[in-house]
Amino acid sequence: MTAHALETTHLNKMFGALKATTDVSFRLEKGARHALIGPNGAGKTTFINLLTGVLPPSSGDILLNGESIASVRREGRVRRGMVRTFQINQLFSGLSVIESLALVISERRGRGWNWFRPAAALADIDREISVLLRDFGLDAVFDQPCSALPYGKQRLLEIALAIACRPQVLLLDEPAAGVPEADRKEVMARIAALPSDVSILLIEHDMDLVFNFANRISVLVAGALFAEGSVEQISRDQRVKEVYLGGAGHD
């Protein structure tokens, strides 16, 4: 049997007497474009923190390509192929775009800060950087410091840095949050063009983006899986409309 890209089995998280995640059994298929939605306080952030190792589960298991990673540290999960982006950008503010990409690629290749060498010795890294700059529309700003980029470009750079890690599973935490309307289409278009062998879990509150991107949706309510299905099934589910789609608040 082929392993799922990512799977949780009976995942629980307790904070004292508070149960933040309740018996969540979830599957992300290989190559999926899957969205996770839910109202305020649904537990989406806790769930993602459990997946990425920020928080340890109280019970249950997390499987990446069929292997348990519940006890693996955050950096170990990245090395095994799970990478995330954040609601608030996590960039190297003191570095330029090209330096940031070079650093991440060099770390992945085990070269660390040795990328400060003549370009001729780094032709393979140069080629990879060129592809990422092109694919994410960053060619014109390659030499600018990350902190000086327009916010839409910062979002694109963060995703480019995630892809530079060569993920098998990519967790995108509200990638269009805070991005001006004029740039949102580009951000989502670049995400839609990501390699098909990268399995993507999108956490998002903008339902137009969700419906345009995902081929499957999971709904989390009060820390538990409330509904799951295709875009059409979720969009027609009256229970989902009552607790989320028709609600006033999202997180």
Rank of each mutant, 00 (worst) to 15 (best):
I234R: 02
Q233S: 09
D135G: 02
I234Y: 06
I217H: 10
S218C: 04
E7Q: 15
V240P: 03
A224E: 13
S93Y: 09
D206L: 08
T46M: 02
F26Q: 06
R79T: 00
D208C: 08
L63T: 06
F142R: 15
L225H: 05
P180Y: 04
I191L: 12
V221W: 02
Y151A: 09
S196T: 12
L95V: 06
I98F: 03
L225Y: 03
L91H: 12
L64W: 00
R80Y: 01
I88L: 14
I129G: 02
L18K: 08
I98S: 13
A164H: 07
F211A: 08
A3H: 06
V169W: 04
V83D: 01
D126V: 00
A164E: 09
K185N: 13
G81D: 11
F136H: 04
Q238M: 00
E158F: 03
R117K: 05
D197P: 09
R236K: 15
S58V: 06
F92D: 01
E99I: 13
Y244L: 15
K44H: 05
I48E: 01
F47E: 02
D61T: 14
S25R: 10
G110C: 05
G60Y: 09
D208Q: 14
R74A: 13
E99R: 08
A214D: 02
R117C: 06
D251K: 06
P150I: 03
K241P: 02
I48Y: 03
R80G: 00
A248L: 10
N114H: 10
N215C: 08
Q154A: 10
G43R: 14
V83R: 01
F211R: 14
R236L: 12
A70P: 12
F142E: 15
I62V: 12
A160Y: 00
D61E: 14
Y244M: 05
G152T: 07
A227P: 01
N65D: 15
I125H: 07
I88R: 12
G53C: 09
Y151F: 15
M1P: 11
V54N: 03
V198Y: 06
E228A: 13
L171G: 09
I98A: 07
D143R: 14
F136A: 03
R79P: 01
R79M: 07
E181R: 15
K13S: 00
L36V: 08
G16E: 10
L122K: 14
C165D: 00
D61Q: 15
R155Y: 11
E29P: 00
P56K: 14
T8L: 10
C165W: 03
P167R: 04
A182N: 15
V243C: 01
S59C: 02
N215I: 01
T45C: 04
L209Y: 00
W115C: 09
L122T: 08
M14E: 10
A35M: 03
D135I: 03
V231T: 15
S59K: 11
F47N: 05
G60W: 13
Q144C: 05
G16C: 09
L18D: 04
L122H: 12
H250C: 01
Q87K: 12
G81W: 07
T8I: 06
F15Q: 04
P180A: 08
A248F: 09
K19Y: 01
L172Y: 07
Q233K: 12
F116P: 01
V54K: 07
P167S: 08
V198D: 11
L6M: 11
R109W: 10
S199L: 11
I191P: 14
L63H: 09
P167W: 05
V83F: 05
R134F: 13
N65G: 14
L95G: 02
